[in-house]
């Protein structure tokens, strides 16, 4: 049942990435449209420093960044685990790989989440 659970979350993360990455791309490249929604308060380019800082201070955007980070990490590490498993490794090594990837993923998630929260105090 564990594999079923991992696979369901893999699908859910994929759907979440589709939505959040789409949102991210839209904010970055459709700045004339989203600027009117307060996402580019200083006007001009979406990647201008003042706009980046302004977005980083928005609670909703912090949630979006952290959710995108979590979904991307899970989705990517699940795919990596699948590739490693196809090398025909034994059950003990499978468990070690799973634990290792969970540990690495959680560390990266915590690091990224701290960065996203810290950016809100810029």
């Amino acid at each position: 049942m564990r594999e079923t659970k991992y696979w369901i979350w893999h699908l859910a993360a994929g759907v979440l990435i589709l939505f959040l990455l789409g949102l991210h791309m839209a904010i970055m490249h459709l700045d004339s449209l989203f600027g009117a929604w307060g996402l580019n308060p200083s006007g001009g380019e979406a990647i201008a420093w003042n706009n980046v800082v302004a977005r980083s201070r928005m609670a909703a955007m912090i949630v979006v960044y952290i959710a995108l980070l979590g979904a991307a990490l899970y989705h990517g590490f699940y795919g990596l685990r699948t590739i490693v498993f196809e090398l025909g490794i034994g059950p003990a090594l499978q468990k070690a790989v799973t634990v290792g990837l969970w540990t690495a993923g959680l560390c990266l998630f915590v690091l990224g989440a701290i960065a996203a929260i810290a950016a809100g105090r810029l």
């Binding site: 049942m1 594999e3 079923t4 991992y6 498993f85 196809e86 059950p91």
Partner: peptide, 13 residues
Amino acid sequence: RKVQAGASHGVFR
């Protein structure tokens, strides 16, 4: 059957 089909080398591969 779901034990075998849903194992780590099962249908999700």
